[in-house]
Amino acid sequence: MNIFVCVKQVPDTETKIVPTADAMFIETSSIKWIMNPYDEFAVEQALLIQAAHTGSTVTVLRVGSSKDTEALRTAMAMGADEAFLVEAQDNLDSYSIAKALKAAIAKSGKNPDIILTGKQAIDDDCLQVPQILATMLDIPSVSVVVGYEGSASEATVKREVEGGALEVYGVKLPALIACNKGINTPRYASLPGIMKAKKKPLTTLSLADVGVSDADRRVKYSNFQLPPEKPPGKKFDATDSTKQAGLVKEVVGLLRTEAKVI
């Protein structure tokens, strides 16, 4: 099987996010990048499928800046066979990323039997690339997948819905599966794996190579701001029992007019 995994590199969860001076993106110079945690499930699932189907290859794809190729190297250290990087600025929109991924898959010269992704990236939380990519490729897609069983031609997947219930789908391959926590336990990239990964092929493509230009943008960022600081809470002194009735009225009023929660 030709197994593809799309990964994204996201700021480490402990990063202190700061907008750039021109407020057009976040400051990336001092960020420690990690593989998007949901994508780790996708890589692991790809390796499990590969192990179950002899002769399969796992190709990992990423669109983003080439300053750090952490996510692709980690995926190859975990066991993926080769990697494609489409070099791009880190603030591309979902449509452009999906278009670049589609073209990168074509450039690999292999027809995908399955494409695995994380269900979302934890930085911008767009939850769009998997579905856009599947639509572009005209293949079925299932997201928030927590269970996978399959042959080389079809799969039964479980997806989580609100309230913890599970939906079960039968999917004909090729398909795109977007993974959620719970589908598997991602392996560590072992030290011998890290050493071996150095020798695995990593192909770098430009946005021009994959035919993506600024004209493809569906979303343009206009301003990055930190959320406003939470205003301090209000305290009411209820020690004087004669004023308590009035206080209750005041609090209820404020909950209605100011906090607008009732």
């Binding site: 190297r73 980690t74 250290a77 560590y188 030290l191 890290i194």
Partner: peptide, 14 residues
């Protein structure tokens, strides 16, 4: 080196 950074990341993660 990039490999040493990866070694450190793996060991720290573990």
């Amino acid at each position: 080196t990039p490999e040493q950074l990866e070694i450190r990341d793996l060991a720290m993660k573990f």
